[in-house]
Structures are given as structure tokens and as C-alpha cells.
């Protein structure tokens, strides 16, 4: 019998070396189940119901329920995030609820790597490479969007006033991590 393969995350080595900087602390998020959901409006309701989080209809907003999250990425596109290992069950449940409805559900659990940055200077660090207005008025808690961080695309999600989650494609993760490290260095005195 063959041994089951073990997981190797894109940031495993880097995150172990991250210095502690309270004003902008950086950490990786644990593995998660992820889906890209797209479809026509008639599928939005049943999709949310089956997933357990009603899909937010307001542009650039995230909704959460019992550890599951639905992030609006486009008018017919959501990033669904759930706990690691739940993908098969979620896919089965959603596909069954969505049978016959126009939609696309694609698992992207391993495509993204997630990290969080937290602290009084978290927004400043992100603004070293992200051109968005991250004031609380323009980018309130619960807002999420695809955007640019330096030369990488990210999904940026404000979880709390001083806490952001970044979802980034696996091969860009080390670059994004290194740019965040570079930018937060000045708050580590």
C-alpha cells in the first residue's frame, strides 16, 4: 500500500522565519477548502443555501457564517472559503442543490494561499504596493476585492479594522510575502 502524500504549503518555509512586529504582524492561514462559484442569478440563492452562507449581492462584500465565507468577486462570481477537508462534502451538496441551474462550481482549494496581516500599520504596509484607498470609509470591515499588490494579483479582505486577509495564487505567495516583509520592516524598530 502506498503512503498518502503529505501537503507542502507555498509559504511553509518563509512563515517560520517571520519576525514579530506588532504594528504589522504577518502570518499564514491554515489550509482551507475553496471554490470559485459562478452562475446566473437563479442559482445564487440555492448556492448560498447549500454552502451555508447567503452569497452577498453587494459589490465587494464578504459574508460569513459558522466558519464559512462567501466573498463577492464579481457580479456573477464568488470565492467560497471553508475549513480544510470539507471540499468534497460541499461540492456534493452544492451540485445537488444546483442541478439544472446555470452555474459553475470549481474547486480551487490549492490554487490560493492565504495570509493575514494585522496591526496599527497593516493598511500602510498593504498600501506599499496596493493602490486602493484603505481608509475605513472607503474600505470598511467586510469589504473584499481582487486588486493588485506590487506585481501580483491578490484578493484583499478586511476582516477587522486592523486586520486583512490576502488570498494569493500559490506561485505568487512567496513574492507577496517578501514584499510585505520588506514594507513592514520599518515598523519593527
Amino acid at each position: 500500500m502506498v503512503e498518502t502524500a503529505i501537503r507542502t504549503g507555498a509559504l511553509d518555509a518563509l512563515s517560520a522565519r517571520a519576525p514579530a512586529i506588532a504594528a504589522a504582524s504577518l502570518r499564514t492561514c491554515p489550509p482551507a477548502s475553496r471554490f470559485n462559484f459562478r452562475g446566473r442569478p437563479e442559482a445564487f440563492g440555492p448556492a448560498g443555501e447549500a454552502f451555508g452562507v447567503a452569497l452577498p449581492q453587494t459589490a465587494c462584500r464578504a459574508a460569513s457564517e459558522s466558519g464559512r465565507h462567501a466573498l463577492w468577486l464579481g457580479p456573477d462570481e464568488w470565492l467560497l472559503i471553508a475549513g480544510d477537508g470539507e471540499a468534497a462534502e460541499i461540492a456534493a451538496k452544492m451540485e445537488s442543490a444546483l442541478a439544472g441551474l446555470p452555474h459553475s462550481l470549481v474547486e480551487v482549494s490549492h490554487r490560493n494561499t492565504a495570509l493575514e496581516i494585522e496591526g496599527s500599520h497593516a493598511a500602510d504596509v498593504i498600501n506599499s504596493g496596493c493602490p486602493l484607498d484603505l481608509s475605513a470609509k472607503a474600505f470598511p470591515v467586510g469589504m473584499c476585492t481582487r486588486t493588485i499588490f506590487h506585481k501580483a494579483e491578490i484578493v484583499l479582505w478586511r476582516i477587522a479594522e486592523n486586520r486583512f486577509r490576502l488570498e494569493v495564487w500559490r506561485s505568487f505567495a512567496a513574492y507577496v510575502w517578501a514584499q510585505l516583509e520588506e514594507a513592514r520592516r520599518e515598523y519593527g524598530a
Binding site: T8, A10, S128, G129, H150, K151, A152, R170, S171, F172, A174, Y175, V176, A178, Q179, E182, A183
Partner: peptide, 16 residues
């Protein structure tokens, strides 16, 4: 140039 120099000039994409 900012931080975009040396190793950070461009993302270096690597496979698993």
C-alpha cells in the same frame, strides 16, 4: 524603483 529591485524586481513563480 522602490522595493522592486533584486529578488523582488518581479515575482519569481515556482512550482510545487
Amino acid at each position: 524603483a522602490g522595493a522592486s529591485r533584486g529578488d523582488l524586481f518581479d515575482p519569481v513563480r515556482t512550482t510545487p
